[in-house]
Design a protein around this nucleic acid. Structure first.
Lengths: 226, 226
DNA sequence: GTACGTAACGAACGCTGTTCGTGTCAAGTA
DNA sequence: TACTTGACACGAACAGCGTTCGTTACGTAC
C-alpha cells in the first residue's frame, strides 16, 4: 500500500480530456484493428488510459456507444452530386460506399440491422438515396419504400461478409466448403440444388451484392412502366 | 449443510433424460415466451432441472445451440406442392412462412443473418425456393443467386421486426416516432425526405416486406425478358 | 486561503459462457 | 451375488462482461 502506484494516473503530464468523440474514436480504432467483440467498455477505457466507469459520463451505455460508432461511419459516406443520366450507377456507388465503410469495421454492420438510420448524419444519406431514385423516374411511393429496403440489403450483406471474415474464412475457402456441401447432397432429395450447384456457388460477394441491388432496381423501373 | 437438499436432484423419481433435442426444445420455449437474450445456458439448464455444465455433453457451446434452434425452426416450414401458374404467390407464401416462424421466436432471426442455411433441413427449403423460381421462368443463374438474396431480405426484415418488438415499441408507436423525426427535419437540408414524409412512413411491416419481395421478383422477371 | 461543483476513479455487484474434477448411477462380468 | 467399468450429471469455480456507487482529486471562484 505504499506510494508505488504514484497516486493514480492523475499526476501524469497532460492526458487529453475525455469526451464522447474521443470515446467513439477509440472504439472505432479498436473495431478496425480487431472486431466489434473487442469493443468492451473496459477495452475502450484502457485505450484512453482510464477505467470503464469514466466512460459513462459521456456515453449512456454500450449500446448507445455502438450506435454512435455506426452513426459516425455511416455519416462519413461521400455523396456526389446527382447526375440523373447515370442514376443507377450512382445508387450502386452509394451502397458500395456504405458497404465498404461497414466492412472496414468488422462486426459493426450487425448494429445497423434493425437500427435504421435515425440521426441527422444518416438522414443525409437517405435523402440522397431518395433523390437518386426520384431522378431515375421511380414513383415517390416506391422510391420512399426502397429507401428502407436498399439499406436493409446493404447492411445484411455487410453482416454476412463480416461473419465469414470473422470466422477466419477466406472467400475461396467458404465457396469451396459450400460447394462441397452442395455436391454432397443426395440428388434425389435436392434435385434442383444439385443440378444448379455451379450457379449457386459462382461469383464473389461483391458480384452477388450488386446483382441484388441491380435486380431490385430493375424491379423498381419495371414497376414504373407497368 | 444438513441433508436438507437431499443429495441433489438425483433421487427424484423419473426425470426424463437429457438430450440435444430436449435442450433445443427448452431453449425454443424460453425464446418463444421471452427473448433470445433470455436463452442463457443457465436458464436452459434450469428449465431442464439441471446445471449449465450438463448441457455441454449434448451441445458444443451456446452458438451451436442457437444454430440448432434456428435450424429446427427453419426446417419446420411447410412446403406445398409447386404450382407453376401461381409461382409468385407461392414464393410470397414461402417467405412469409419463414418470417412468421422467426417472428414467433424473438431475437432468433439475428442468428440467421450471416449464417446461411447449411443443414439438410434448411436445404430442403432452399431447394423448394429454387424450384419455384425456375418454374416461374427465371434463368438458372438468376434463380440460384436469388436463393441467397430472398432469404437475406427475409431474415433482415425479421430482425428489424424483432428489434422493434423487443424494445417494447408497438408498430403504431414506431411509426409515430419516425414520422415525428422526419417532419421535424429542416426542409432545406432534407428536401426529399420532408417532401415525401407521408410515403416514407406509410404501410406496415408486412406490406413493406411483401413490397420488397415483389419488387425483387419483378426485377427477376424483367431480367428474363430483356 | 477556503469552499465548491464537476469530472474521474477504484471497487464492487450480478451476470455471462465455459471447464474441471468429483460424484453417482446402471449395466456387464466373474 | 459381488465387483468393475464406463458414461453421464453435477457443484464449484474461473475469467470476463456491463454497469453502479461512493469517494477522491482537481480547477476555479470567492
Amino acid at each position: 500500500m505504499a506510494t508505488t502506484r504514484s497516486r493514480s494516473t492523475r499526476d501524469r503530464p497532460a492526458k487529453s480530456p475525455l469526451s464522447a468523440e474521443a470515446i467513439v474514436d477509440a472504439a472505432l480504432a479498436i473495431c478496425r484493428e480487431e472486431t466489434l467483440d473487442a469493443v468492451t467498455m473496459r477495452r475502450v477505457a484502457a485505450e484512453l488510459d482510464t477505467g470503464p466507469a469514466s466512460l459513462y459520463v459521456y456515453v449512456q451505455n454500450r449500446e448507445e456507444l455502438l450506435r454512435q460508432m455506426l452513426d459516425r461511419v455511416s455519416g462519413a459516406i461521400e455523396l456526389p452530386r446527382v447526375e440523373p443520366a447515370r442514376w443507377r450507377e450512382q445508387v450502386h456507388e452509394l451502397v458500395r460506399g456504405w458497404l465498404r465503410a461497414m466492412e472496414a469495421h468488422p462486426g459493426l454492420a450487425s448494429v445497423a440491422v434493425g437500427n435504421p438510420p435515425a440521426s441527422e448524419r444518416t438522414m443525409r444519406v437517405a435523402d440522397h438515396l431518395l433523390e437518386l431514385l426520384l431522378a431515375g423516374g421511380v414513383t415517390p411511393h416506391d422510391a420512399a419504400w426502397a429507401c428502407d429496403i436498399l439499406p436493409l440489403i446493404t447492411t445484411a450483406t455487410a453482416v454476412e461478409s463480416d461473419v465469414h471474415r470473422m470466422h477466419g474464412h477466406v472467400e475461396a475457402e467458404t465457396v469451396a466448403r459450400i460447394e462441397d456441401a452442395i455436391t454432397a447432397l443426395a440428388p434425389e432429395r435436392f434435385p434442383h440444388l444439385t443440378r444448379y450447384a455451379a450457379e449457386l456457388v459462382s461469383g464473389d460477394g461483391d458480384e452477388r451484392f450488386h446483382f441484388a441491388i441491380d435486380v431490385f432496381l430493375d424491379g423498381l423501373v419495371a414497376r414504373g412502366r407497368g
